[in-house]
Amino acid sequence: MASSHLIRKSMLNQGHLLYKTRCASFSSAPKPEKNASHHLSAVIDAVKERKLPPELRGQRSSLRSETDIINIAEQRIWQSMKEGQFENLPGKGKPLDLRDNPHADPAEDTLYRILSKNGCAPEWVELNKEIRTQVNGWRSALKKAWANRCNQSHSQWVESCKALKLQMSDINNKVFRYNLIVPFGRQMFGLKWEKEVARLEEQ
């Protein structure tokens, strides 16, 4: 019994010592997450470096700029022109075929082509023309009322302003509707009374 007790105690001591040794080794070993992050950062830097022109590779990031890349691109274009690489391009000297828009949605592009062949235009095109016509007429009326305000009574000027503001509201409602249906990038700004009057004051 005594011998078995001693053996058990010895095994427990050895196990405890082994546990301490492993804990110490884990605490002193470098963290794999940190090494992984450094490795990932190095890979990203290498990929960015390969995307740069050879003339800019190996330089510090602070020495690189968008202007440097543009200058290199222009130098290469001029060099290619001198070497005559643009002389025998297909379609040289011929007008561009703008019937198809590669960036437009195929369904919309087909619809616009059908409308164009039948002498029609999309709703937003017609609305754009209508808005611009109304804006030009409204600005002419405002300019006329502004020029005649000295010869009119204050009440007449106030009435003219009310009528013009109502027309401006109608135009802005059409602009709002236009911006909802027009393709992205073709939106327009509405009229602002203060801005229009300030422009007349500067004239």
Rank of each mutant, 00 (worst) to 15 (best):
S3V: 11
A42G: 08
P106F: 04
N148R: 10
N71G: 06
D105Q: 06
E83L: 14
S61P: 03
S4G: 14
H16Y: 08
R132S: 12
A163F: 10
F176T: 15
V175F: 00
G185A: 06
K129G: 03
H103V: 09
P122W: 00
L17C: 09
I114F: 15
E130W: 02
N179L: 02
N172I: 04
F26Q: 14
A36D: 10
G84L: 00
A198G: 10
K9H: 08
P54T: 03
S37G: 00
N101D: 15
T110I: 04
E123D: 13
A107F: 03
L98E: 06
P122C: 04
E202D: 11
I77D: 06
R177I: 04
V43A: 13
D100P: 04
Q134S: 14
T21N: 08
E201I: 01
T133F: 12
H154A: 15
A141R: 10
L111I: 08
G190T: 06
N128F: 01
D109N: 14
N173L: 10
K20C: 07
A163W: 05
V158H: 12
L200H: 07
I72A: 05
D109Q: 13
L89K: 07
K34L: 15
R57V: 01
S160M: 08
E201L: 09
R64V: 03
R149W: 02
N88W: 03
R76H: 09
R57Y: 01
